[in-house]
Structure formats: structure tokens, C-alpha cells
């Protein structure tokens, strides 16, 4: 059984490592989030044009950025898993997907909340919001495909291929939606005004950093569960203290 040991060694060591790392990302994330929200809601000045409602961007913008980056990272991991047949990368890809989808959803939700006072409508067919919606669909497709295949190996490989096709398509979709939007003279959200107050920047960056740390912490925690589930029949899982109790 020399072969199996070699194959399983990576997830086993990573399981332990991830367990140690999670708190190191989770606590700073909570702290930074608290700081960012405090600055954003109490320190940052009221916007001259948009009033108080603009404050939602402190959550909206970081989650939009995260949802896009996480898709690319997910596709990258999926591609690694497909090409080099490394099981851990595929597990990382499936662990990232729900977090990415969550950020896409938060971004849409906060976008709608922001749209109501700004445009007087919950949903405006703005280029970025529409792209974000399609991104959410892509995440959901990935999760749905992975969930409906019973054999984990086939599930990993099939959804990896989908993620790669999706990431080739994302720029095309983004471009086409922008094109469509300019043709229909829709209004485009412009957050980056001429001058952004220092406190605004501080709030934005600390929430963004908090979101990154949160994404890493949650992904590591989730990949631990995935490893346990996939490796439940192996020796090392049986020997874990948490499995024995």
C-alpha cells in the first residue's frame, strides 16, 4: 500500500496545518471588520451627493472584488487539480465556491439596497450589477454540477473543466454586458469619485482586508471538512483524536 500512503499524505498534513492556521486568519478578520465598519459608519464624513446611503459601499465594493477574485482563484485551483491530478487543489476549489457565491450574493444584495435611494429602484440593469448576477449564476452552476455527481473524482474533474470554461468566458461576458449597457444608455455606478476622504479609504481597505482574511479562514475550515469526508475510510482519519472520541 505504498502508493496509497503517498497519495493520501498531502491532505493528511494539510488537514493539520489548516487547523492551526484558521484562528490566525479568523481573529484578525473579525478585528479588521470591526475597525473598518466603525470607521465607515462613524468616522467617515457624509457624502455631499449621496448622503448617508453611500456608506453601503464599504461592504458592497469589497464583496464585489472578492467575488471576482475568488472565481479566478477557484478556477486556478481547479485547473491545477485537473492537470496535475492533485486532490488537494480540487478540494480547495470546491471549498472556495460557496464563499465566492456568498460574496457575489452580498454584492448584489447591497447593490440593490444602494440602488433604491440612488435611482429609486431596487434593481437597475447596470453593467456591473448584471455581470455580478451572471457571476453568481456561474458559481451556482459550478456548485450544482459538483453536487450532482456522486463519484468525487469525476465531480472534481467535471466541475474543474466548467470553471476553466467559465473563466475564459468571464471577460467576454463582462465586455458584452458593458457593450450592451452603453448601447442602452444605462446609468453606470461610479463609486470612485474625484476625491475620496482618507477615512473612507481606511474603512474600505480594512473591510477589504477583513473579507480576504475571512475568505481564507472559511475556506480552510471548509477544506478540512471536505478532507475528512473524502478520507473517512483511511487510517489517519481513524487515528485523529476528534474522530476517536
Amino acid at each position: 500500500m505504498a502508493i496509497n500512503w503517498f497519495k493520501y499524505s498531502a491532505p493528511a498534513t494539510f488537514y493539520e496545518l489548516a487547523g492551526k492556521l484558521v484562528p490566525w486568519f479568523a481573529w484578525p478578520s473579525a478585528l479588521l471588520f470591526a475597525i473598518g465598519v466603525y470607521i465607515g459608519f462613524f468616522v467617515a464624513p457624509t457624502d455631499a451627493v449621496q448622503g448617508e446611503a453611500y456608506r453601503i459601499i464599504f461592504i458592497h465594493v469589497p464583496s464585489s472584488i472578492l467575488s471576482m477574485f475568488l472565481y479566478l482563484i477557484m478556477a486556478g485551483y481547479a485547473a491545477l487539480g485537473l492537470i496535475f491530478n492533485t486532490r488537494l487543489s480540487s478540494m480547495m476549489a470546491s471549498a472556495l465556491a460557496p464563499t465566492g457565491a456568498l460574496f457575489a450574493f452580498i454584492s448584489l444584495w447591497t447593490g440593490a439596497l444602494w440602488g433604491k435611494p440612488m435611482w429609486g429602484a431596487w434593481w437597475v440593469w447596470d453593467a456591473r450589477l448584471t455581470s455580478e448576477l451572471i457571476l453568481l449564476f456561474l458559481y451556482l452552476g459550478f456548485i450544482a454540477l459538483h453536487a450532482s455527481i456522486d463519484d468525487p473524482r469525476r465531480a472534481d474533474r467535471a466541475s474543474a473543466l466548467l470553471a476553466i470554461v467559465g473563466s475564459v468566458n468571464v471577460p467576454i461576458i463582462y465586455f458584452s454586458v458593458k457593450w450592451w449597457n452603453t448601447l442602452h444608455q444605462g446609468s453606470t455606478v461610479k463609486f470612485t469619485g474625484t476625491s475620496m476622504h482618507v477615512a473612507m479609504q481606511q474603512a474600505m481597505f480594512s473591510v477589504l482586508a477583513a473579507c480576504w482574511l475571512y475568505a481564507i479562514a472559511v475556506t480552510l475550515a471548509r477544506v478540512r471538512s471536505i478532507i475528512l469526508e473524502r478520507e473517512r475510510n483511511t487510517q489517519w482519519v481513524a487515528e485523529l483524536p476528534e474522530a476517536r472520541s
Partner: peptide, 20 residues
């Protein structure tokens, strides 16, 4: 149903340029 869920978002550019 699953195939539609996977394929429809990827077809959006075609729809946009076709109707455009």
C-alpha cells in the same frame, strides 16, 4: 435542467450581440 443552468450564463454574450 442542470445543463441549462450551466450553459445559459455562458451563452449570454451570443444573446447580447445577436439581438444587438
Amino acid at each position: 435542467v442542470l445543463v441549462s443552468l450551466l450553459v445559459l450564463p455562458l451563452c449570454i454574450p451570443v444573446l447580447i450581440f445577436g439581438t444587438g
